[in-house]
Structure formats: structure tokens, C-alpha cells
Amino acid sequence: MEKNRILIALAVGVFGITTTEFGVIGILPDLAAYFNVTIDTAGLMLSAFAIVVAFSGPFMVQWLSSYNRKNLMIFSLVIFVVSNLLSVISEHFYVLVFVRMVPAFFHPVYWSIALSIAARQSTHGDSSKSVSMVFSGLTIATVLGVPMATYISDLFGWQASFLLSALINLVSVLGLWFFMPPIETEKKVAQKRDLGILKNNVLWVNFLITFLIITAMYSTYAYMAEFLGSVSKMDGTDISLMLLVFGAMGIYGNRLAGKYMGKYPKKATVLFIVLLISVHLLVYWFGMYYWLIVLITAIWGLIHTGGFVIGNLNLTSSISGTSELINSLFTSCGNLAVTIGTLLGGFWIASYGVHNVIWSSIVCLLMCLFTIFMKVKFVKEMRV
């Protein structure tokens, strides 16, 4: 019971920060229209946030390592509340981008602590289940936060979506405050020893695999609202429902990924990549047919969301034991991938049109399969 309470509290916080980070996905067309910028420029709302996380993560985690863990997580979420409130009154696009970049510095701090605590709460052999439970906060944010932000924006304007994110983060603060027990600070000796993992070649190969997976996921998903509007001819309400379907299916997909990564990590990783390639091809071929894209979107959500759990477990399995540093590397890896994926998708749209954005994801996934093949062939001692 105590373990579940801790994991739920952590997941609630993840729900809050994920809604802030990815809630803009469904409102990028609205922001582009309001500020009179192109859709790929509007993508900076996602990519600028992610790039701050990517490059500040390990440094922020090490810098703040001596502070109380519970208080640090709560403070991080408070920064998210304030940022969302300031976003509401931002009248210039690049001011809005800057305001969103501030909480990005604290995003990896929360994530790395939460994932490390989750791993420590697990008994031998069920780490994947505990980690997937924390990631359920991300999935539920995809189910509720992102489509709700899109729907609210469609009804009341984009400012209302940021008010919603502020409220969600405030609820997350209260959840941690009341339900999270005190957390011991890691010892300095352990922190110094952690730095040695950066010399491990296996870690960096798995880093590349995780990076390619998440880049592929977001080069198309970041522009999902634009694709559904332009290619599938859906209106704002339909797009909100599609994002809801996408995320709802992701809840089950997240559980499946955690289950099978615990039993068959190598097979689960390869199968995930093959299935994600397949569903992207279906989106490309049948994206213009309303009812077919509804069904395909559900399948897409089922597969897509498991990528985070698969990426995290592949990366953390590179080294025995767990640490906040390696989880901060995952957070940096994931957000760097979101940044590159968003930029790649925007470039692909600008060059070839929104319908062809699918191919940017497929190229990255094929590169990932090639990397896995080379890893198995030349680094046989690697554990995945």
C-alpha cells in the first residue's frame, strides 16, 4: 500500500509537468494563427522547451543534489504553475517561448528523482512495472491533458489551455504535499561514483537507440493536430477526440510495454519499432479517410506510448543499479529527441508537405533498427 501511494504521487506530478510540455501539441495551429507565424515556427513551443531540458538535465540534477527531494519536486511543480500563468498574459510569440523555457530547467530534476524513487520502490525483477506506473502519469496526460487543452483552446482560446495546465500542476503540488513521504537525500559518495558511468560505451549505444526511437515518435506526433486538420479534414472538436482516443489506448500500451520489457526486453524493443513503422505507413496510406484514420489513430496510440518505457528501460539497463544521474541522462536524451524530432518534422512539412511528415519518423526508425543490428553483432556482451 505504501509503495503504491508513493508511485501514484510520483505519477500525479508527471501528469502535471507532461501536460505543460505536450499540451501545446494540439494548439500549435491556434498559436500559429494568433501570432501570425508558420506551423514549423510554432513548433518552437515544443522544441525550445525540450532543448532546455536536454542540455540542462544532468547539470541541474547534480547542482541540486544536496536539497531535500520532496521539497525539490514540489518547488519544481510550483515553477510550472507560475510559468503557465505568465503564459496566459504573454502577447508576443517569443516572450511566450521564453516563459515556457523557465520551467524546462526543473523538468529533468523532477523526472530523474521520480524515476530513481520508482526503481528503488520495486522488488527484484519488477522494476519495469514500477517505472511504467510512473510513466502512466505521462500517458494519462496524453489521454486527458493534451486533448483537454486542445478542446479548451477551441472553445475559449489558447490562453485557456495554459490556465488548465496551471490548475493541473497546482493539483500535482497538492498531491505531492499530502501523499509523498519524506525522501532521503543521496549521499555525496554515491553521487561522485555515478560520474563513472559516463565512461561506459554500452550506455552511449543505448542512448543512441533511445534517442532515435523518441525522435521518430515526435517528428510526426508533434504535428498530429496539423495532420488531422489538413489531411483528414477534421475540425477542432474531432481533433480533440482523436487525441483523447490516442492517449486512452496509450494507457494500455504503457502497461504492455512495462510487462514485456520485464520479460523479453530485446524482442519487445524490436517488435515496438516494427509496429511503429507499420502504423506510420497506415497513417500515410489511409490518413485521408475519416473512419479509417479513427481506427488507425487508436492503434497508433496503443503502440506509441510504450516508447518511453522501452527507451528508459533500455538506457537504465546499461548499468547495474539505479541513480538520479542516469535517469537525468534519459530525461535529457528524451527531450533532445523531442527537440530534434519536432524540428525534423517541421522541416519535412516545410519541404514536402504535412502528408509526407510520416516519412521523417520511418527514416529514424529504420536507423534505429540498423543500430540495434550493429549492437547485437559487435557488442555481444551488452545487456538490453
Results as ranks from 00 to 15, higher is better:
Glu2Ser: 15
Glu2Ala: 14
Glu2His: 12
Lys3Phe: 05
Ile6Leu: 11
Thr18Ile: 13
Glu21Thr: 06
Gly23Ala: 12
Ile27Cys: 00
Leu28Pro: 01
Leu31Val: 13
Tyr34Met: 09
Asn36Cys: 07
Thr38Gln: 02
Ile39Glu: 01
Thr41Ile: 14
Leu44Lys: 12
Leu44Glu: 13
Leu46Met: 12
Phe49Thr: 03
Ala50Pro: 03
Val52Thr: 14
Val53Leu: 11
Phe55Ser: 02
Phe55Glu: 05
Gly57Cys: 01
Pro58His: 09
Met60Thr: 10
Ser65Phe: 05
Ser66Met: 11
Ser66Ala: 13
Ser76Trp: 02
Ile79Gln: 05
Leu85Met: 10
Leu86His: 01
Ser87Ala: 06
Ser90Gly: 03
Phe93Glu: 04
Val102Pro: 00
Pro103Glu: 04
Phe105Ser: 02
Tyr110Ile: 10
Leu115Met: 13
Leu115Ser: 15
Ile117Met: 05
Gln121Asp: 06
Ser122Ala: 15
Thr123Val: 14
Thr123Ile: 14
His124Tyr: 08
Asp126Ser: 13
Ser130Thr: 07
Val131Met: 11
Val134Gly: 00
Gly137Asp: 03
Thr139Ser: 15
Thr139Met: 09
Ile140Met: 10
Ala141Leu: 04
Val143Gly: 03
Leu144Ile: 14
Ala149Gly: 03
Ile152Asp: 01
Asp154Leu: 01
Ala166Lys: 05
Ala166Gly: 06
Asn169His: 05
Leu174Phe: 00
Pro181Ser: 04
Pro182Thr: 09
Glu184Ser: 12
Leu195Phe: 15
Leu195Lys: 14
Ile197Asn: 00
Leu198Gly: 08
Lys199Arg: 13
Val205Phe: 07
Val205Trp: 11
Asn206His: 14
Leu208Asn: 08
Ile209Val: 14
Phe211Cys: 03
Ile214Pro: 06
Ser219Val: 10
Thr220Phe: 15
Ala222Met: 05
Ala222Arg: 06
Phe227Lys: 04
Val231Asp: 04
Met234Gln: 09
Met234Leu: 15
Met234Val: 07
Asp238Tyr: 10
Met242Thr: 04
Met242Arg: 09
Met242Asp: 01
Gly247Leu: 06
Met249Lys: 07
Gly250Pro: 01
Leu256Arg: 11
Leu256Cys: 11
Tyr264Thr: 12
Pro265Ile: 06
Lys266Ala: 08
Phe272Cys: 07
Leu282Phe: 09
Gly287Thr: 09
Tyr289Phe: 10
Trp291His: 11
Ala298Ser: 05
Ile303Leu: 05
Ser317Trp: 06
Ser317Gly: 12
Ser318Asp: 08
Ile319Lys: 00
Gly321Glu: 07
Thr322Arg: 12
Ser323Glu: 10
Ile326Arg: 00
Phe330Cys: 03
Thr331Asn: 12
Ser332Met: 05
Ala337Arg: 08
Thr339Pro: 04
Thr342Pro: 03
Leu343Asp: 07
Leu343Cys: 13
Leu344Pro: 00
Gly345Met: 01
Gly346Met: 02
Tyr352Thr: 10
Tyr352Met: 09
Gly353His: 06
Val354Thr: 14
Ile358Leu: 04
Met367Asp: 08
Lys375Cys: 11
Phe378Thr: 13
Met382Trp: 07
Arg383Ile: 15
Val384Met: 14
